[in-house]
Computed example of a mutant assay.
Amino acid sequence: MTRVILVDDHVLVRMGFRMLLADAGIEVAAEYGSGEDALAGYPHVRPDVVVMDLSMPGMGGLEAIRRLLAQDAKARILALSAHEDTAHPQRVLRAGALGYLAKRSAPDALIAAVKAVARGERYLDAPTAQALAMAQISGEESPAAVLSEREFSVFLHLARGLSVAQIAAALNVSTSTVGTHLYHVKQKLGATNQSELTLMALRWGLIEP
């Protein structure tokens, strides 16, 4: 039986996923409400698949994916997201996740995605795969594509309203390091303050309204 860890800060979402997976004969071995808790619990569970939501308080799903793969390079991760952009799936797959599934997908897509990732195969839901293909063909990218991986993480945290100190704590870096990344983010995106960064993130579909 395939064993998974569910990581999502919404209890009702985890409950729904657990019932859906159980009906398909997939065992939910553990559930966590944050990336931090998932990192602490993972070594004790060693699941076949980690189903990781990207939008969570604290370090967030993307940073948790990076740290989890640094902890265990063989971890098989399926990322879930409510975002409609192409930047998130690109970043997630680049970070080492095997799959990406939009939360708007049909329930049976979650089953197919978990089974594919458990086999060590890549998985992208059809609409996301099409959006990525169209963006590549047209040459259109989110302006956030110019940011480095860590700059992108700092940008998202800032856009969600976190302070420099809160971001430093979430990413486990110094406030001066966050300040440096923030300077580069503003320079690259042509922003002057946090409000402008939030508006940019909303316009590009990188955060939820």
Rank of each mutant, 00 (worst) to 15 (best):
P43Y: 04
V45P: 07
L69D: 00
I65F: 10
Y42Q: 00
V28T: 15
L80W: 11
Y42S: 02
A30R: 13
A64G: 04
R76D: 04
G41I: 06
A30I: 05
G35E: 05
D37N: 13
G35L: 07
A22F: 03
D85A: 09
L68D: 02
A87V: 10
M59E: 10
R104M: 10
L20A: 10
H44E: 15
L110H: 04
L62G: 08
R18V: 01
V50Q: 01
A22T: 06
P107F: 02
E84L: 12
D53I: 06
L69A: 00
V50H: 02
A95N: 12
P89K: 04
Y42D: 00
K103F: 05
R91F: 14
A40G: 01
A87T: 14
L68N: 00
D23T: 12
I77E: 04
L80P: 06
V45C: 03
L98M: 07
V51C: 13
E31Y: 10
Q90C: 11
G61W: 09
A75C: 00
E63D: 14
M52T: 08
D108R: 14
I77Y: 04
D108S: 14
K74R: 14
D48F: 00
L39D: 00
D23I: 05
F17I: 05
L80F: 12
L93I: 15
D72E: 03
A109G: 01
A30N: 09
I26A: 00
A102P: 06
A70R: 14
A22R: 15
A102M: 13
A79E: 09
K103M: 09
A95P: 07
E63A: 14
G25V: 09
A82D: 11
H83C: 12
P57Q: 11
R18Q: 13
A70S: 09
A24S: 05
V49I: 07
G58N: 03
A95F: 12
A82Q: 11
D37S: 15
Q90W: 13
R46H: 13
E31F: 13
R94N: 13
S55Y: 10
L20S: 03
G58W: 04
A40D: 08
R104E: 14
A109R: 15
R67C: 00
